[in-house]
Design a binder for these strands. Structure first.
Length: 872
DNA sequence: CCAGTCACG
DNA sequence: ACGTACGTGACTGGT
């Protein structure tokens, strides 16, 4: 079979891409534009050309045999920008992931490798495509070789065939060399004949064919041109030699070794992920979808015979979108080893047999995202019990770093691809719609099948990692509890919010006009761009910090400028109040359901540490630190008149967890004696007795404690405390001298992460940190801080989750009407009838403090009041 | 759809 | 030398 060989000029293409595209960076600050452009070009070429053989050639080192001829060759070139150099390792990784050969040869340029290979291929009668950003390469064109040169962008290509070169220059490909000899090439510092440009060179070659031909007939020239040619004959010949691609380079690789069989998909996904090439990743998943699925037979039921409902079944409830508290329910599917059923919603709603089976806890249901299904079923009067498996939660425990939004993506991790992505079925954006029943039913059917098929794989993995207990006895029961909390919702006093909104709007109008008059112009204060112009250009305030796109106007910068201009304090106030109005008044009002409540969704399979997150609305970031914002909490009220809101929060849970995990004696002792931990830290760091610890010292010590939990760095601490790095480092040193156990623990946990590739929490939650061995300082440092932080944050999350399960049990066991409403990482919020308060004061701290037994006591503060605001 | 900002633990 | 504190979600402006 005839070969189709692609020869790529790696350096030239990388340069082209780098200068053609804006300086993109991924989330770690690595520039990616050259690699991105290269990838786009590669994708397109692969698709269009379907090559059988490929290679990417690179230049090796700084000097080549050409320097022996002309030492200034490529002289005067700008040094490769560091933003580009840093991309070459990724480029090589990328090429390897494509399973494309790479090659470089000391003393030779990529051109020569390509020239040599193309000659070999031509002799064998194979088709060749050369791809570069450098027009020099067009000299390689021949009847069987086409040279693709990138234009302007990187995917826009000009194809140089022999004919095209003839048309464009009136030259043969070989004469391209002669042209360079005469006119030179500024980018490679090839001199040519001074004063001869493209026009003259073409004219001369049209008449005489080659550089040598021109000189043989030199007497036909006259005047200035003749003088210039005669004076620079050597230069012209040297230039021609320099521009000539070596086609007999001593390469140790042959065309036969270049066969291309497609990329290593897994590796490619890894590299793209690392580079954060989201659009490419999505596209790949999309095409992966198109692979043929095995045929599935299933039955669509118009009524449910109780005999089909078995003791163990995979169950799936298809929802139209993520907002399961309000969205449409599209149908149910059931699967066992042999059978698959699809049941339309109207059939479900009518079927007593189904409802009975569903609330029978002896009938095991295998589901994925059981919380979503349970909450949605709840809305149409179907109660759920007996959830025995949750695919999404299981997979999340196995690896919390992946995204868990679509079943198809989750099971792909387990090598299963018999289910489509929702986007494939419904489309997205404005085009989203429910498809015809035939399509919809098959999609739903495949979901139950998927759960049945992948369940054993997930369970195996959980067992293998010793995480089954965490999954089965913590996350799975928690899902039910969270579902109940969400469905109950929290009552919001709409009138209160509206009244606060009125008042705030008025204030904001005044502040706005004040700011405009101080600025001497009207502008949008909410636009950092416009604000930056006003502050730093018009008013000439000093620029202390910049962002990627311009001046930083963040609060910490403005704080430092406060006092330098009257406008600053007004802007800070405007920001503060504007945030309250837009997010916490207007935003919250939009989330109130018909029942007068907000029903947040706790995402249980999202964070990498094991925490929950809260959305629509986010009830985990309701203001509390500043009084103006805190007033928002007055709008969160009990669901019944006379009831009270209750808040119970863990005191210093993360530092207690640190004490437990590090076994640091001094830290444990401090907590055993219930000392103020920040004051204790201050005593150690500043070497003073308790009574001499000032407010500032305590504040600094508090920042150090935070730093320790976050994975300390001198820079981070210095930023936070507004001190120098040296001073920050001194604090850290003294902290570690006082708490040697903590220091040892931090070292151990990073070492463990390097050895195992992951870190774990108290309950064996796991987080993989592949970057911990990266040669990139940024990535590695980030992974190291994460290694220190995740066990602490994650163990605290484990503990409160366990407390929630125990709390739900206790409320049930004690027959209390009190209900748990919210979790905010280290606190639980309830609403309670007043007569249960006395009991709760004992019970809640008791349960929370003994969710786990550690060497360090856990401490819970209990508070109650008429509104959330008053729980203090 | 991203960047900047800011709310929480 | 490198340049950042850990984990989230919502809103606004601007492409």
């Amino acid at each position: 079979m005839a070969k189709k060989i692609l020869l790529l000029d790696g350096n030239s293409l990388a340069y082209r891409a780098f200068f053609a595209l804006p300086l993109l960076t991924n989330e770690h600050g690595i520039h990616t534009n050259a690699v991105y452009g290269f990838t786009m070009m590669l994708q397109r070429i692969l698709e269009e050309e379907q090559p059988t053989h490929m290679i990417v050639a690179f230049d090796a080192g700084k000097t080549t045999f050409r320097h022996e001829t002309f030492s200034e060759y490529k002289g005067g070139r700008q040094k490769t920008p560091p933003e580009l150099s840093e991309q070459f390792p990724y480029l090589r990784k990328l090429i390897d992931a494509y399973r494309i050969k790479r090659y470089e040869l000391p003393n030779y340029e990529a051109d020569d490798i390509i020239g040599t290979l193309s000659l070999e291929a031509e002799r064998a009668g194979d088709e060749v495509i050369v791809i570069s950003g450098d027009k020099d390469l067009t000299q390689l064109a021949s009847p069987s070789t086409t040279v693709y040169i990138t234009r302007k962008g990187i995917t826009d290509i000009e194809k140089y065939t022999v004919e095209h070169i003839k048309e464009k220059y009136g030259l043969t490909p070989e004469q391209i060399i002669d042209m360079k000899g005469l006119m030179g090439d500024a980018s490679d510092n090839i001199p040519g004949v001074p004063g001869v440009g493209e026009k003259t060179a073409l004219k001369l070659l049209a008449a005489h064919g080659t550089v040598e031909g021109v000189y043989e007939a030199i007497d036909q020239q006259k005047g200035k041109l003749k003088e210039k040619l005669e004076a620079n004959k050597d230069l012209a010949l040297i230039s021609k030699k320099l521009a000539t691609i070596e086609r007999q380079a001593p390469i140790e690789i042959a065309v036969d070794e270049l066969s291309y069989g497609g990329p290593d998909q897994d590796e490619l996904v890894k590299v793209w992920n690392e580079l954060a090439f989201k659009s490419l990743l999505e596209k790949m998943e999309y095409t992966a979808e198109e692979t043929e699925k095995e045929e599935l037979t299933f039955e669509v039921l118009s009524e449910i015979d109780a005999s089909i409902l078995e003791d163990e079944m995979a169950v799936h409830l298809e929802l139209y979108d993520e907002q399961y508290h309000t969205c449409d329910l599209l149908g149910v599917s059931l699967a066992t080893a042999e059978k698959t059923y699809v049941i339309p919603m109207d059939v479900i709603k009518e079927s007593q047999a189904f409802k009975d089976w569903f609330k029978d806890d002896t009938k095991k249901k295998y589901m994925s995202d059981s919380k979503a299904s349970t909450a949605a079923f709840f809305r149409c009067g179907v109660e759920v019990d007996g959830v025995d498996f949750d695919l999404m939660l299981g997979a999340y425990i196995v690896n919390p770093s992946l995204t868990y939004t679509d079943l198809a993506n989750i099971v792909q991790e387990y090598g299963y691809s018999e289910v489509s992505q929702n986007e494939q079925i419904y489309g997205k954006g404005a085009k989203k719609a429910v498809p015809a029943d035939a399509v919809l039913h098959e999609h739903i059917a495949r979901k139950a099948r998927t759960i049945w098929a992948v369940r054993p794989l997930v369970l195996n993995k959980l067992q293998e990692n010793e995480q089954y207990d965490l999954y089965r006895n913590l996350e799975l029961p928690l899902a039910t509890i969270l579902g109940a909390m969400e469905s109950l919702g929290v009552t919001v006093d709409k009138e209160q919010l509206l009244a606060m909104g009125e008042e705030l709007s008025g204030k904001l109008v005044k502040i706005e006009s004040e700011i405009h008059s101080l600025a001497g112009e009207e502008f949008n204060i909410n636009s950092p761009k416009q604000l930056g112009m006003v502050l730093f250009e018009k008013l000439g305030l000093p620029v202390l910090k910049k962002t990627k796109t311009g001046y930083s106007t963040a609060a910490d910068v403005l704080e430092k400028l406060n006092g330098q201009h009257e406008i600053i304090s007004h802007i800070l106030l405007y920001r503060q109040l504007g945030k309250i109005l837009s997010t916490y008044i207007e935003g919250l009002l939009k989330e109130i359901h018909e029942d007068g409540k907000v029903h947040t969704r706790f995402q249980q399979a999202l964070t990498t540490t094991g925490r929950l997150s809260s959305i629509n609305p986010n009830l985990q970031n309701i203001p509390v630190r500043l009084e103006e914002g805190r007033k928002i909490r007055k709008a969160f009220i009990p669901s019944f008149p006379g009831w009270v809101m209750v808040a119970a929060d863990y005191s210093q849970i993360e530092l207690r967890v640190l004490a437990e995990m590090s076994k640091d004696e001094r830290l444990i002792e401090a907590f055993k004696n219930d000392r103020d931990i920040h004051t204790t830290t201050a005593m150690d760091v500043f070497h003073v007795p308790a009574e001499e610890v000032t407010g500032d010292m305590r504040r600094a010590a508090k920042a150090v404690n935070f730093g320790i939990v976050y994975g300390i760095s001198d820079y981070g601490l210095s930023q936070n405390l507004n001190i120098t790095r040296k001073e920050a480092q001194a604090f850290i040193d003294r902290y570690f001298a006082s708490f040697p156990g903590v220091k040892g623990y931090m070292n151990d946990v990073v070492a463990g992460a390097k050895k195992n590739g992951f870190v774990t929490t108290l309950m064996n939650r796991r987080r993989y940190l592949p970057d911990i061995t990266s040669s990139n300082f940024n990535l590695r440092s980030f992974a190291e801080r994460t290694a220190m932080n995740t066990p602490i944050q994650g163990s605290a999350a484990d503990i409160i989750k366990k407390a929630m399960i125990d709390m739900a049990d206790a409320l049930e066991r004690e027959g209390l009407k009190t209900r748990m409403l919210l979790q905010v990482h280290d606190e639980l919020i309830f609403e309670a009838p007043p007569e249960e308060l006395e009991k709760l004061k004992e019970l809640v701290p008791q349960v929370m403090e003994h969710a786990v037994e550690l060497n360090v006591p856990l401490k819970v503060d209990f508070a109650f009041g008429d509104t959330w605001y008053d729980t203090k």
